[in-house]
Amino acid sequence: MRTGDVPGHGADAPRRRSRTARLLRRTVVVLVVLAVLLGVGVAAGDVALRQRYDRNIERFEDPFVALPEAERPPAVEDPAVPGDARNYLLLGSDSRISAGDASQWEYGAQRTDAILLVHVPADRHAVYVVSLPRDTWVAVPGHGDAKINAAFSYGGPALMVQTVEQLTGLRVDHLGVVDFEGFVAMTDALGGVEVTVPETTRDMRAEFPAGTYTMDGEQALDYVRQRYGLDGGDFDRVRRQQNWIRAVLGEALSRDTLTSPSTLDAFLLATTRSVALDEGFGSGELRELAVELRGLRRDDLTFLTVPTDGTARSADGQSIVVLDEAGADGLWAAMRAGTVDEWLATGDADVLGDRVD
């Protein structure tokens, strides 16, 4: 079924888009940064074109200068592979700079609804994208236990990085902040993306009979918004968001896109307009990583959610997500040791599968 045939898609889409901001922020974060990494590599041979994309990327104050070096985890070095593993913390926000620039951050004014840790092993053979639910109950340095997204509200980007490093024991190399405004354009620049709905689902806004669709950006909004009728509720909705990211990345990395100058240019313009990176993440490093990942394909990307023990209530009555501490510690240890594939094989991981309800 083509994009125009998706049920439940009507003229009130712009109004619906404004109500889906928080949900969409979760979806775009890793897509944008990885697309930039790969896209800059594709364009590396054309200096003028590369500079055009580089200029679109906004920069914000480096949050790492505020962190005491002695208190940070060390970089992970694999003696069998030249170079280090890399970890990128990606946050979703209404505005790239107002929410990402420490000079514009205000106490209590912003929280991030999307928190993803992207791990690139030293051998660059894969990318692992770990979702940290925003309500995950963790220790926030200097503030006691709280939902993990409160760290951004309490102390901005620097405290968010410090909280994640303390939780995982992993050194965060760079931080990206993404807004959602350009995501519809990104999806449409690709001519839509293919998404399969295995069973008919519906809510008050949209219905998707079972089938495979080529969804444009607006239609995909309805798909990721659905929660009612899904057995896992919000957790299933997160999987749908990951499924959409995977579909867009797969299309962006396809031969049809990479060999079409007009499609690739439209996609890269849309992505670079939607991302802000810390000042330390320079264009040279972006291009170097892009070249290292030039052979990456959809099957080399693994999407998973940190192991949890479901939901509960905190002592003060907040609805929270409880970490499976043993499972999470196993994941962090595997990322530090460069053995994520082995850890995934144990069956303890909540990995995005081929079927997404």
Rank of each mutant, 00 (worst) to 15 (best):
A146E: 03
K147W: 03
I148S: 05
I148R: 08
N149V: 01
N149L: 04
N149F: 00
A150M: 08
A151P: 00
F152W: 14
G155S: 10
L159G: 07
M160Y: 07
M160D: 02
V161T: 05
T163E: 02
L167W: 12
L167R: 06
T168A: 13
G169M: 11
D173R: 03
G176Y: 06
G176E: 07
V177G: 02
V178L: 13
D179L: 10
F180Q: 09
E181Y: 12
G182N: 03
F183N: 01
F183P: 00
V184E: 08
V184D: 07
M186R: 00
T187C: 10
T187A: 12
D188M: 03
L190S: 01
L190A: 05
G191I: 04
G191N: 02
G192P: 01
T196W: 09
V197A: 12
T200E: 10
R202W: 02
A210Q: 10
A210F: 12
G211V: 11
G211T: 10
M215S: 04
M215A: 06
M215D: 00
D216E: 09
D216W: 05
D216G: 11
G217N: 04
G217R: 05
G217C: 06
Q219D: 05
A220E: 02
V224Y: 08
R227F: 06
R227Q: 11
Y228S: 15
L230C: 02
D231H: 13
G233V: 07
G233A: 15
F235R: 09
D236Y: 12
D236W: 10
D236M: 11
R237N: 05
R237C: 07
R239V: 01
R240G: 03
A247D: 01
L249W: 08
E251I: 07
L253S: 07
S254F: 14
R255N: 10
T257H: 10
T257E: 06
T257K: 11
T259P: 06
S260R: 13
P261D: 08
S262Q: 10
S262D: 09
T263Y: 05
T263P: 02
T263F: 06
T263L: 14
A266Y: 08
A266Q: 10
L268A: 05
L268N: 05
L268P: 00
L268C: 06
L269K: 06
A270H: 00
A270L: 04
T272C: 13
S274F: 00
A276R: 05
D278A: 12
G282I: 01
G284S: 13
E285V: 11
L286M: 13
L286C: 02
R287Q: 13
R287Y: 03
E288R: 15
E288H: 10
L289R: 13
A290N: 09
